[in-house]
Amino acid sequence: MTESILIIDDNEDILEFLSVVLGDTYKLHLAADGAIAQTILDQEIIHLIISDIMMPGIDGFELCSRVKSNVEYCHIPIILLTSKNTYKAHIEGLEVGADAYIQKPFSSELLQVQIANLLKNRKKIKDHFASSPFEDVRVMAHSKTDEAFLKKLDEYIQSNIKEPNIDIDMLAEHMFMSRTTLYRKIKSLSSLSPKELIDITRLKKAASLIAEKEFLLYEISRMVGYSSQSLFSRNFQKHFKMSPTEYFNTLPKA
Rank of each mutant, 00 (worst) to 15 (best):
M54K: 12
I50W: 00
S51P: 04
D33V: 05
F61D: 03
D59F: 10
I40R: 04
G60V: 02
H29F: 15
G34M: 09
L30V: 12
L41V: 03
M54C: 07
Q38F: 13
A35I: 09
T39R: 15
E62S: 06
K27V: 10
H47G: 06
I46G: 06
L48I: 07
A37Y: 06
A32H: 10
A35R: 11
G34S: 11
I49V: 15
L28F: 10
F61K: 02
L48R: 05
Q43E: 15
L48E: 02
M55S: 01
I45M: 07
E62C: 01
L63Q: 05
D59W: 11
Q38Y: 10
A31D: 04
L63D: 03
Q38S: 13
L30G: 00
G57L: 03
H47I: 07
D33M: 06
L28K: 11
G57H: 05
G34A: 13
S65R: 12
S51A: 12
M55W: 07
G60F: 03
L28I: 15
T25F: 09
D52V: 06
H47W: 05
G34C: 08
H29Q: 11
L41T: 02
I46T: 09
Y26P: 04
L63K: 01
C64D: 00
A31S: 14
H29E: 09
L48V: 06
E44D: 13
S51R: 00
G57T: 07
I36M: 14
F61I: 05
H29D: 08
E62W: 04
M55E: 03
G34Y: 03
D59Y: 12
E62Y: 04
I45S: 08
L30F: 15
A35H: 11
D33S: 12
L28T: 09
Q43N: 15
I46K: 01
I46Q: 01
A35S: 14
D33K: 05
Y26C: 11
Q43P: 02
G34V: 06
T25M: 08
L41M: 10
L28V: 13
A37L: 08
T39G: 11
G60C: 05
D52N: 14
L28P: 00
H29L: 12
A37K: 05
T25Q: 15
M55C: 04
A37M: 09
I45W: 01
L41N: 03
H47P: 00
D59V: 10
S51E: 01
I46P: 10
I36R: 14
D42Q: 15
L41F: 08
D52Y: 00
I40N: 03
